[in-house]
């Protein structure tokens, strides 16, 4: 087995990052759980569902307007699914109406099962209805229609988004819905920030699953991620110094 040329440094970096994450997971298993800073957007989910319950209006959840669980957007979709699972449990607990939409066929059966399972966990399987999760291939028009017709009180959008993020968020704003958005699709981040009340920017959304589960072992993996950031900063500084000294390290990074 020979490492593919051009992917050697990526492989080494991946091993180092996995090492950091695994180390903190093991530490968490021993009971040394790192402290997590507050993520207002995730804390606001309870508030959003509570408000929708009081108003007697539904909560809308979207796990992205494109990108499926089997392509390069999978990590974002997974983060969105974790949020959906949590929201569905809250909705089942408070008997709040839930509507989850997706334009991606791959994600639809998974979302449907997640919501059904959340209701089952709360012993409210009879309250689950198939139209709680809807497959909407023409996402723009259909999602606007659903959101307006059902008069949603909360709009939670976490996942990979394209131009639909603006449309969804603006329709939500026009309905007076409390809005929580999160994406790692960098060209859509400004629109989410502009339109939503609470935002998960980039990496924050990847912490959603661990944060919401409150599972110490999962929280440990986030601390590992932070050490990855320290490594990135150190490498940047090292590269800067080397370039200033006349030594190019780019060729080594492209190995």
């Amino acid at each position: 087995m020979i490492l593919v040329s051009g992917r050697i440094s990526a492989f080494i970096t991946l091993l180092i990052l996995c090492g950091f994450i695994l180390w903190y997971i093991m530490e968490a298993r021993k009971g040394r759980v790192p402290k997590l800073r507050r993520l207002p957007a995730l804390e606001a989910i309870d508030e959003a569902v509570g408000r929708a319950t009081e108003m007697g209006r539904p909560v809308h959840v979207s796990c992205g307007s494109g990108g499926s669980i089997r392509d390069e957007w999978a990590s974002q979709v997974l983060a969105g699914l974790s949020v959906l699972s949590y929201v569905a449990e809250l909705c089942a607990e408070y008997d709040t109406s839930l509507i989850a939409t997706t334009p991606v066929a791959d994600n639809f059966p998974i979302m449907s099962e997640i919501v059904r399972e959340a209701y089952r966990r709360k012993n409210k399987e009879e309250s689950f209805k198939p139209d709680m999760v809807v497959y909407v291939p023409g996402y723009n028009a259909a999602s606007i229609g659903i959101m307006v017709e059902r008069n949603i009180a909360a709009n939670i959008m976490v996942g990979p988004f394209w131009h639909e993020s603006v449309i969804l968020a603006e329709v939500g704003a026009s309905l007076g819905a409390i809005q929580i958005g999160g994406t790692a699709t960098t060209h859509q981040l400004p629109f989410i920030v502009a339109s939503c009340d609470y935002v998960l920017i980039g990496e924050e959304m990847f912490a959603a699953g661990a944060y919401l589960s409150r599972d110490p072992v999962q929280i440990g993996s986030i601390a590992g991620m932070d050490w990855g950031k320290v490594l990135a900063i150190l490498l940047t500084l090292f590269g800067l110094l080397m370039e200033a000294a006349g030594f190019s390290i780019i060729k080594y990074l492209n190995m």
Partner: peptide, 27 residues
């Protein structure tokens, strides 16, 4: 950079069976 690191963390949690969102949820 944050997104790249987050993606790796989610991938690893999924591989280790800790991120169970796609398996009918449940934390």
């Amino acid at each position: 950079i944050g997104i790249a690191l987050g993606s790796v963390a989610v991938g690893l949690r999924t591989l280790l069976g800790m991120e169970r969102g796609y398996l009918r949820g449940g934390g």
